[in-house]
Structure formats: structure tokens, C-alpha cells
Simulated assay, not measured.
Amino acid sequence: MDKIHIGNMIKNYIDSKNLKRSGIAHLLHTPNTAIYAYEKRDSLKTSTVMRICHALKYNFFMDIANSLPQEYEYNRSLSVAKDVLIEQQNAEITRLNNENNLLKELITGKK
């Protein structure tokens, strides 16, 4: 099993976005040194990660979930609304593709 180092995930995100740790510390109401300390830790309390997620407006929990095998079980009721929306959008795409193809046939006179 691969170990997830949440501190590295946070550090990589901050670096990739060229964010200032002092700004993040200000949002979290913590000293600048706390951000550096978080980056070095391989695990953090979920409440701390949640605060960082809100401050950065980034979902580190989703990155963690996506690193797990797809066959792992999870509470599907939490993702039902998203899945319904995706299904509706796929149906709409199919309908629009059919209409588009029909219009192309009408324009070109092909049947």
C-alpha cells in the first residue's frame, strides 16, 4: 500500500500555484511556521486538513480518495446527485449529437 504524505500534497499544491505561505497562514489564523510544519508532516488531523481545504479552496480529500483503487467501497449516497447530473448530461449530449447528425443529413441531402 502506498503511503499518502498529506504534507507533501499541501506543499506541492502551494508550490504549483506559487502561493505565499504567509497569506495562507493569515487565512488560517496561524503563524507562518505552522504552514511549514504542516508540509513536513506525513499525517494531519482531518480538521486541520479541512481548514486548509477551505483556506485554499482545494479538496485534498478528493486527491486522497482518487489515489485509492476504484473497487474500494464508499458511501454512494454522497455522490448520487453528481452521478445523476452526469447521467443527465450524457443523455443530453447523445440527444444533441443525434440532432446534429440529422441536421447534417438534411443540409447535405444524404439519407
Rank of each mutant, 00 (worst) to 15 (best):
L56T: 08
H29C: 14
S47L: 06
V49S: 01
T46F: 03
I93G: 01
H54R: 05
M50L: 09
Y58I: 01
R95V: 01
V49L: 13
L68R: 12
T94W: 03
V80N: 09
A25K: 10
R21K: 15
S77Q: 12
L56Y: 10
S43E: 13
Y58G: 00
D63L: 10
L85E: 05
S43I: 14
P69S: 04
N18D: 14
H26T: 10
K57L: 02
K20C: 13
N59P: 00
V84W: 12
G23N: 15
D83Y: 08
V84T: 15
P31G: 12
K40F: 08
Y38H: 15
L19Q: 10
Y74Q: 04
R95N: 03
H26S: 08
T94M: 05
L68T: 07
N75H: 08
D42P: 02
R76M: 11
R51V: 00
Y72S: 06
K40V: 11
N75R: 09
L56I: 12
F60I: 02
I52C: 00
A37I: 09
L78K: 13
T33K: 15
H26W: 05
I52D: 00
L56D: 01
A81Q: 09
N59R: 01
K57Q: 11
N59Y: 00
N59A: 01
P69K: 04
P31Y: 06
E92N: 05
I64K: 03
V49N: 04
Q70W: 07
S77I: 09
D63I: 06
